[in-house]
Design a protein around this nucleic acid. Structure first.
Lengths: 221, 221
DNA sequence: TTGCAAATGCGAGGATTACTCATGTTTGTG
DNA sequence: CACAAACATGAGTAATCCTCGCATTTGCAA
């Protein structure tokens, strides 16, 4: 977010932070490193990605790699940050204009489709979010990302239902969002057809909840 | 499931399988290995668990460890299998007797509470299911487990709604279940109070869907 | 231009760790 | 008791992440 394309890593203990590239030359090299890492993750998964291979493919030495990234996770983190920033902007744009129930229905449906497409199309994002995150820091980034995304949903709900309890709306939005991500993960790990069905079912369930917020269950006794 | 408490591992390539303990002595040693691994995972997480430390704490040599477990993941796999078997039995028992809507409501609610309690109380299960699964095989085990659990839910739904499309019921059950697991993961990674709220909200959403299966959205459009 | 400090680049080597294997020991069984 | 199979051992191997001292390039002020 704040111009930090390079990160030190953390897992409770702080690893030595790294220099941010200040020259044009090194900025380009860092880009090549990230591109190489992205390609390797797409091919083999982040777990099988080797730092030496990243360096080789980027045309730099292993030492240069570690000049800008504190450790292996820092590279994955940097890539993840890019995706989250990108998708957050997309989500904010989709939900910003919503002012009524029908608008929410359309925007949410479209949003889910876009997200689903992203999951299907981006091997790197898929890998990073799909369980290869043996990493506390990454999980926390994911949680922060979920919260930020849910925030947009909360804002819409508050506009549509000003009388409702704000805390409840926040909980609902976070849950709906988290459920959506779980659905995506499930959907991409099963066949395409079953995945589509699952996403459609999620849409239905989520929309029912989002649009019918104030009512209790319908015909349950 | 079939008396196999010891597993070889796989990730596409099959690692050399290991001997199953046939003597009383070795069965006890294998138990000590699993207990040691469980304790270490509870303390530090499976990622930080060191094979040498497992062996040391179990009072066996590193060689003996590898006599019964093909690799590190095989130990985690074995522990995970125990938990899934245990929880599947629990779920089957809870849902077997359900024959009407009110019964489903009670059984499902109780089930979610039990599962939530399990997540909160079992550091090992939490660690294994909560993202430290940098492992394709484990994710597949989790998916198989989800399917098996959802199967019980599907069976109930089919009993309650014999007229409904079976494929739709299956999709719904799987999705509801996966959403539940996602909710648990989220709930244990936020504070206790927020976690409880999330679980409660999940219960409400899931039950609305489970009990109101055949109807469309209530007052939408 | 020149001098110099800071930034960048390099890769052999240190450190860690999962896992193997040759060898010795124990157990069940005819 | 003999003997094969199961079990136990731990030093050694291989793979990999990351460090560190030193060489080179860049920006900039004198």
């Amino acid at each position: 977010m704040e111009g930090s394309s390079v990160a030190g890593s953390q897992d409770g203990q702080i690893a030595s932070p790294r220099r941010a590239p200040s020259q044009q030359r090194s900025r380009e090299r860092v880009e090549r490193m990230l591109a190489a890492a992205s390609a390797l993750i797409a091919e083999q998964g982040s777990d099988a990605m080797r730092m030496g291979e990243v360096a080789e493919r980027a045309g730099v030495s292993i030492g240069s790699l570690y000049q800008f990234f504190a450790d292996k996770r820092a590279i994955i983190w940097a890539l993840a940050e890019r995706y989250t920033a990108e998708s957050q902007a997309c989500i904010a744009a989709a939900l910003a204009q919503v002012s009524d129930a029908e608008g929410l229905r359309r925007a949410f449906s479209e949003l889910v489709d876009i997200y689903y497409g992203l999951f299907l199309a981006e091997p790197v994002m898929r890998d990073i979010w799909s369980g290869t995150q043996a990493d506390k820091a990454l999980r926390e980034l994911e949680l922060a990302d979920s919260r930020a995304n849910a925030e947009f949903l909360t804002a819409v709900l508050k506009r549509l239902r000003p009388a409702a309890d704000p805390a409840t709306l926040e909980t609902t939005a976070l849950l709906i969002w988290q459920m959506g991500e779980a659905t995506m993960r499930l959907a991409i790990s099963v066949g395409r057809k079953e995945g589509d069905d699952l996403v459609a079912a999620y849409k239905r369930i989520a929309l029912r909840e989002l649009l019918d917020q104030q009512a209790g269950p319908c015909n349950v006794g």
